[in-house]
Amino acid sequence: MIVGEQKDLNEIIDMLGDDFDSLLIAGCGTCVTVSMAGGEKEVEALAEILNMHYKNIGRDVKIETATVKRQCDFEFLDELEEQVKRNDLTLSLACGVGVQQLVERYPDKIFLPGLNTTFYGATTDTGEWSERCIGCGNCVLDQYFGICPIARCSKSLLNGPCGGSQDGKCEVDPEIDCVWELIYNRAKKLGKLDELTKLEPPKDWSTYRDGGPRKLINEEVYND
């Protein structure tokens, strides 16, 4: 799912600024709830923290909270209408997608991002998420035994590790596994090491963002 992380508290406070008296904190009940960044629990805790802060600096601010199932489908945004309209500002704790959809739905209001949206990842441990996919638009997991070098190699190399792979870790950060070692180990286990001798030509990046922001239409369903 999409993984995000709450922005630094002081960054949020600076972003909110001095010009508002009422604030809505809007949460999202899907990806960012699972990644523990923007669900109802975080929304309510943040409201309480900001209340504590504004009280401490002597500012009179009214903070409301609301969490909808998703902020990337318009019907859910409709549920927020009253609250969005009666507050000066909305801080959205959804991913970057949700924030932008709010702007589209309510163009006369201001929406600020409370999260830094980061990557598509899996829950690798309770409270830990790791990047697995960058959405390159042309999945080649079949060629790499189900382990993606495009997302998980710091240099997106397709023909083997660089010279910086040390003790199974990436030169960029010793916490990062060298994905090529993982691919090699898996290939060896499956007895398919010879498949790694194939020369992989340069990737067509046009299916990725490099080809421009993307749109997807399902012909079966779409009606202009």
Partner: peptide, 12 residues
């Protein structure tokens, strides 16, 4: 609960 802790701390 995290939120509750902040509620306790509202009063300076």
């Amino acid at each position: 609960r995290k939120k509750e802790l902040y509620t306790y701390l509202q009063e300076p």
